[in-house]
Design a protein around this nucleic acid. Structure first.
Length: 480
DNA sequence: TGAAATGTTGGGGCG
DNA sequence: ACGCCCCAACATTTC
């Protein structure tokens, strides 16, 4: 029997570098058991969706290979997290359990139960590392949580800069051979019949190495033009860090340092870097919000919206999910999502706005769809984003800000590159018509080979009508 | 991290 | 030459 080991409990922090629990486990000198629990008993409906499961499979495979390269071994088990940990602690006589703090409310409850039930038996150590700042550190003058983003972010920037990331360990103590785990394949995370993941494989490289490569490329190529480039869905101007950050293949602290490192280059890079770090700020804001208000994915943050007159329209919702609304920017976005597991942020706002305001479908339905189809699906960001769009969130877009999907397309993709990539049936339309095929004259449509209602749908609703209807729905809230 | 409606201004065509 | 009108361009307000 080997000496008592330390269990390193992996959740959404699937990396070796900048990993405080891992560093501490190495420093302890004890045998190491890196553990991942596939827990489908998590309360609530928020288990990984189909796209997330695909990513998780590959991220775990990458982590297992990286650990093996350092002489360790990833142990995979499945079931209720508390039971699995309790069983493993008993089996291997563990002396310690180390992990990163999670801000997901259900996980936070689980962490408290661990202390209560196992705290006497072994050393439980919880580390910071999922966020740049902990919720307790960012408070208003009155000691409250911020409800508005800009003062929140200013307060974050006044705090001491995040410390330098920790290096990855060079070698790990071997995992006791008597500790057994499941084969990754037995979790059945990958889609089978049909295998719809071809577009995902083409687009992504899950795992820590892929994450680091993405960060380096982004800092070298896109940061300088980020302030404007991030808004153009037809160009590769965004970081695409979201799934890597969600699974913790890279830490926000590593991102912070990489951006700060190149910012001094010139004024444009400084500006782009600030704009990008601000996006990290929204991630922080959403996580803090969810941590302090666990109902965020279920209930409107602004209680006035409890009585909002949503419509029950399964047919419209289905058309939206399939990219068949008749508005090219909306449809291109929904098809990009379906094909790649990701959608450009500008287009997320427009598609979400269309569902909630043009169709008056409850934001929770859109949230569910994104949850299932996004590789970066994240409880805090997804809920925060949808509530922001719906107008019922913290620091939300005022309800009466209604995106015009035609103007948004013309403004942010003036040459129609994005539309043509995802809507090949429209590719012969002119730049002028491509975001409003329903307004094109019959000769132009015929010349482009398009029969409206046959090759491409008629608009699901007319914009001006939908806009007035949404504003009318807002009126009903004022009266209550 | 809007858009539409409404208001204002100023240049140029033209009687 | 002058004033009127038109309207594009821009600014402000409203939803």
């Amino acid at each position: 029997m080997s000496p008592p080991p330390v269990i390193l409990w992996y959740r959404d922090d699937l990396r070796l570098a900048d990993h405080a629990p891992l560093r501490a486990a190495v420093a302890s000198g004890a045998p190491l058991i890196p553990l991942y629990i596939f827990d489908e008993t998590t309360p609530g409906k928020w288990r990984p969706g189909a796209a997330s499961r695909w990513w998780l499979h590959h991220s775990l495979a990458a982590l297992a290979a990286d650990l093996a390269g350092l002489g360790s071994r990833l142990v995979i088990r499945r079931g209720d997290s508390l039971e699995v940990i309790t069983t493993l602690v008993r089996q291997c006589q563990a002396r310690g359990l180390y992990f990163h703090r999670s801000h997901d409310p259900a996980q936070a409850v689980l962490e408290e139960r661990l202390w209560r039930e196992l705290g006497e038996k072994l050393e439980i150590r919880r580390f910071r590392g999922r966020l740049l700042q902990e919720p307790e550190q960012v408070r208003t003058g009155a000691g409250e949580a911020f409800r508005v983003f800009t003062p929140f972010w200013k307060a974050c920037l006044r705090l001491p800069e995040p410390e330098a990331p920790l290096p990855a360990p060079a070698r790990l103590a071997p995992t006791p051979s008597e500790v057994t785990g499941l084969e990754l394949d037995s979790l059945q995370l990958l889609p089978r019949t049909p295998d719809w993941a071809a577009g995902l494989r083409e687009q992504w490289r899950p795992g820590e190495a892929g994450a680091r490569l993405r960060l380096e490329t982004f800092c070298e190529e896109a940061l300088t033009g980020y302030a404007a480039g991030r808004d153009q869905p037809g160009r590769p101007g965004t970081s695409r860090h979201s799934p890597h950050l969600h699974f913790g293949e890279i830490s926000p602290r590593q991102v912070w340092q990489a951006v700060r490192g190149v910012q001094a280059t010139d004024a444009a890079t400084t500006r782009g870097g600030d704009a990008y770090l601000r996006e990290l700020g929204w991630r922080e804001f959403c996580h803090h919000l969810l941590h302090q208000w666990p109902q965020l994915p279920e209930q409107p943050f602004n209680p006035r919206f409890a009585d909002f007159p949503w419509r029950d329209d399964g047919e419209a919702f289905r058309a939206w999910t399939r990219g068949q609304t008749g508005y090219p920017l909306v449809d291109a976005g929904m098809r990009e999502l379906w094909h790649t597991g990701w959608m450009h942020n500008r287009v997320r706002m427009v598609t979400a706005s269309f569902l909630v305001k043009h169709l008056l479908v409850p934001w929770q339905q859109g949230q569910d769809w994104f949850w299932d189809t996004l590789v970066d699906a994240n409880l805090a960001n997804n809920a925060g984003g949808w509530q922001w769009v719906a107008g019922c969130g913290a620091d939300a877009a005022p309800y009466f800000r209604i995106f015009n999907p035609v103007l948004q397309g013309q403004k942010f993709d003036p040459h129609g590159d994005y539309a043509r990539r995802w809507l090949p049936e429209l590719r012969h339309l002119s730049d002028k018509d491509i975001y409003a095929p329903f307004a094109a004259n019959p000769a132009s449509l015929a010349a482009a080979g398009i029969r409206l209602g046959v090759d491409y749908p008629e608009p699901l609703v007319e914009h001006d009508f939908a806009r007035r209807r949404a504003l009318g729905a807002l009126e009903t809230l004022k009266k209550t």
